[in-house]
């Protein structure tokens, strides 16, 4: 990743890897707002969007520009 406080933010991803936390779980963490670290949760939610799509569709999305998530979006059930 690239951006403000990236070297701090990356620790969350490292901890998630160490705990073998799947993307779905990471996407459900209620990260404090407004923080830089919360971007990891947003990225996880975006990955979950991609995972729920069939592989071909996800590839097509990738080509079109990846699906967007936002901090204020309503969580999916």
């Amino acid at each position: 990743m690239v951006g403000e406080q990236a070297v701090e933010v990356i620790q969350i991803a490292a901890a998630a890897m160490a705990g073998e936390v799947p993307a779905e779980r990471l996407a459900e963490v209620e990260f404090a707002y407004p923080t830089f670290t919360a971007i990891v949760g947003l990225a996880a939610r975006q990955v979950v969007h991609a995972l729920r799509m069939p592989l071909d569709e996800a590839r097509a999305w990738g080509a079109l520009g990846r699906p967007r998530v936002a901090e204020w979006e309503r969580r999916e059930a």
């Binding site: 990743m1 690239v2 951006g3 403000e4 990236a6 933010v9 991803a13 799947p22 993307a23 707002y33 407004p34 923080t35 830089f36 919360a38 971007i39 990891v40 947003l42 990225a43 996880a44 975006q46 990955v47 995972l51 967007r68 998530v69 936002a70 901090e71």
Partner: peptide
């Protein structure tokens, strides 16, 4: 896309997660 980055005026960059 991150509110904190907007508030702090630091909107350059991205986070890429690969799983």
């Amino acid at each position: 896309d991150l509110d904190r980055a907007v508030i702090d005026g630091r909107t350059e960059g991205f986070c890429k997660l690969v799983v």
